[in-house]
Design a protein around this nucleic acid. Structure first.
Lengths: 136, 136
DNA sequence: AAAAAGCTCATACTAAAGTACCAAATGCCT
DNA sequence: AGGCATTTGGTACTTTAGTATGAGCTTTTT
């Protein structure tokens, strides 16, 4: 954060200098107006790129968009989806049951249905497939 | 791709117009040179941001850097790491054994060691922890 | 050379996970 | 009201997963 402030400060100073320089140059006729504008344009273009790059790096970048349409397509119910998410968190059937206040039997039923709908043999495979389908 | 070319073309045309306008304005004294420069700067700043955004979207964006240092820190061996990756792919112990040409017993040993080193109770939890630690 | 680390594998367990059925309660739709 | 999907949960069973322990073998380290 300190770094960002520093960078911005330096940029502003540099720009002020550029402004003054350009003004002076035009008045004295040393440089054409096109040249000045080209330089300014280039500098700000790269500043734009730089700033955006920084802002990207600070964000976690959620390219992780869940495909709700796919969930419906697979006919995964609300409850099953909840179970699926808890499986991906590494919980056991018993633990999931406790979290959702239902018996382990119920979770087993949900898991079995999930495996069929996701065409998986195991819960680990189900998680893998679900991630590839971008539904979790 | 066609879209990109179109956008670029329009941008170049817009800039040429800006150039001519600025030249004329300065000569006719309608606008101050600072104003022109400010406008140019702003426009190119956003162009920079826009272009960078586009270039990011086209890339797969591999923010997925595996922390090799962490793997060593946890004292996870080469073989154990191979097993870990296969677990995350959703394979069973038997299947992993077949892939690595060793017995299921061996895989079980590796898995048990992995669970201890990753402080996990189950393979699903191990995968989850490994992903959080960015080692897979 | 001896010790340590890594990989291998086996046996004998216990504990989860998963399958196959069946069945009941609830809520929703038309 | 009757049908349908969802959720719940039970029993009984098979299959994986995971633990504990011991042991042989190879490579690296001391």
């Amino acid at each position: 954060m300190k770094k960002t402030v520093l960078v911005f400060g330096l940029l502003i100073i540099a720009l002020l200098i550029l402004f003054q320089l350009s003004k002076f140059s035009v008045l004295s006729g040393d440089l054409k107006i096109e040249t000045i504008i080209a330089i300014i344009a280039l500098v700000f273009f790269f500043i734009g790129v730089f700033i955006h790059k920084k802002s990207i790096l600070n964000k976690p970048v959620a390219i992780h968009t869940i495909d709700k349409h796919k969930i419906e397509e697979l006919e995964i119910t609300t409850r099953e989806y909840e179970v699926l998410k808890h499986i991906s968190e590494g919980l056991s059937n018993k633990e999931i049951g406790e979290k959702l206040f239902v018996s382990e039997s119920t979770i087993k039923t949900h898991v079995s249905n999930l495996l069929i709908k996701l065409n998986a043999k195991r819960r680990t495979e189900a998680v893998n497939i679900a991630k590839q389908l971008q539904i979790i």
